[in-house]
Simulated scan of single mutants.
Amino acid sequence: MTVVVVTGGTRGIGQGLVRAFLAEGAQVAYCGRSIPDSSVIGDALGIVADVTDRADVRKLWDASVDKYGKVDIWINNAGLSNSRKPLWRLDPAEIDAVVDVNLRGTLQASAVVLDAMLAQGHGALWNMEGLGSNGQIVAGLMPYGATKRGLTYATLAMAKELAGTPVKVGLLSPGMVVTDLLTRDYEPAELEKAKKIFNILADRVETVTPWLARKVLAGTRNGGRVAWLTNRKAAYRFATAAFTKRDLFGNS
């Protein structure tokens, strides 16, 4: 059976991926800075771990190998967004936290995981893209977007460093997904305006993550990307928005 590890698996896209991989028959481990009872997912192995701490990442790897015998796929999903404010209005600690988890944490975790995968002779590491990965700039989300832009570069650089080895890295792009990170910090009137775009381009976790899980299990070339919301799909949705009514924030 394929063994998958998902960091940041206690909520949002991460939790959706854990459930989706389990549904596909994989053996799954996941981590969070805490594992509340509400985050216990099926037969998955939940481990308390901080991805910015190499010792914690190694603990997650070792626990997964102890239980399942190997790790085939590792997904660096853990991430933070910042409050929707201009840079100069953000608390310094918030800027540090976003950079720490999204970029430094992913680099530190990747270093541990790639070394372990090379030692075991196989493996695939996936890094999660987000707003900013493709160069899109949104005012108020600068620290988050900068980390995701940097992470895309880092992943492609990892692919070059891994050339000729049995280990691959890839980019996972979930597109616009309805989570608390998407809707936080909007004023009520602004949120209602934003929802018009979200209802065209966004999707629910339970829609996106099963597709992503199947694509990850199918594999990709070293340095490849799996993207849910392609430019063609986005253009089609805008073109048909007047005829296709979607309500991602109601019951439909």
Score class of each variant (00 low, 15 high):
residue 38 S to I: 11
residue 38 S to D: 12
residue 39 S to N: 03
residue 39 S to F: 15
residue 40 V to C: 15
residue 40 V to T: 15
residue 40 V to N: 10
residue 40 V to P: 09
residue 41 I to Q: 09
residue 43 D to W: 15
residue 44 A to F: 01
residue 44 A to Q: 02
residue 44 A to W: 03
residue 45 L to R: 04
residue 45 L to G: 08
residue 47 I to E: 00
residue 48 V to D: 01
residue 49 A to N: 03
residue 49 A to C: 03
residue 53 D to L: 10
residue 54 R to C: 14
residue 55 A to M: 11
residue 55 A to S: 12
residue 55 A to T: 15
residue 56 D to Q: 13
residue 56 D to W: 05
residue 56 D to I: 11
residue 57 V to Q: 04
residue 57 V to G: 11
residue 58 R to A: 13
residue 58 R to T: 15
residue 59 K to D: 10
residue 59 K to V: 14
residue 60 L to Y: 05
residue 61 W to S: 05
residue 62 D to I: 06
residue 62 D to S: 10
residue 64 S to I: 11
residue 65 V to E: 07
residue 66 D to T: 13
residue 67 K to P: 08
residue 68 Y to C: 06
residue 68 Y to I: 03
residue 69 G to N: 08
residue 69 G to F: 10
residue 70 K to H: 13
residue 71 V to H: 03
residue 72 D to V: 02
residue 73 I to H: 01
residue 74 W to I: 05
residue 74 W to D: 00
residue 75 I to S: 00
residue 75 I to R: 00
residue 76 N to I: 01
residue 77 N to F: 01
residue 77 N to R: 05
residue 78 A to M: 00
residue 79 G to Q: 00
residue 79 G to P: 01
residue 80 L to Y: 05
residue 82 N to C: 07
residue 82 N to Y: 03
residue 83 S to Y: 07
residue 84 R to P: 02
residue 85 K to L: 09
residue 87 L to P: 04
residue 89 R to K: 11
residue 89 R to A: 12
residue 89 R to F: 11
residue 89 R to S: 14
residue 90 L to W: 03
residue 90 L to P: 02
residue 90 L to H: 00
residue 91 D to S: 10
residue 91 D to Y: 08
residue 92 P to R: 07
residue 93 A to S: 11
residue 93 A to R: 12
residue 95 I to S: 02
residue 95 I to R: 04
residue 98 V to K: 07
residue 100 D to V: 14
residue 101 V to F: 06
residue 102 N to G: 03
residue 104 R to Y: 13
residue 104 R to D: 14
residue 104 R to V: 13
residue 104 R to I: 06
residue 105 G to D: 04
residue 105 G to H: 03
residue 106 T to D: 09
residue 107 L to W: 12
residue 108 Q to G: 12
residue 108 Q to I: 15
residue 109 A to E: 00
residue 110 S to P: 02
residue 111 A to Y: 15
residue 113 V to F: 07
residue 114 L to A: 13
residue 114 L to S: 09
residue 115 D to L: 13
residue 116 A to C: 13
residue 118 L to W: 06
residue 118 L to A: 08
residue 118 L to K: 11
residue 118 L to P: 01
residue 119 A to F: 15
residue 119 A to K: 12
residue 119 A to L: 10
residue 120 Q to C: 12
residue 120 Q to N: 05
residue 120 Q to W: 12
residue 120 Q to E: 08
residue 121 G to H: 14
residue 122 H to W: 13
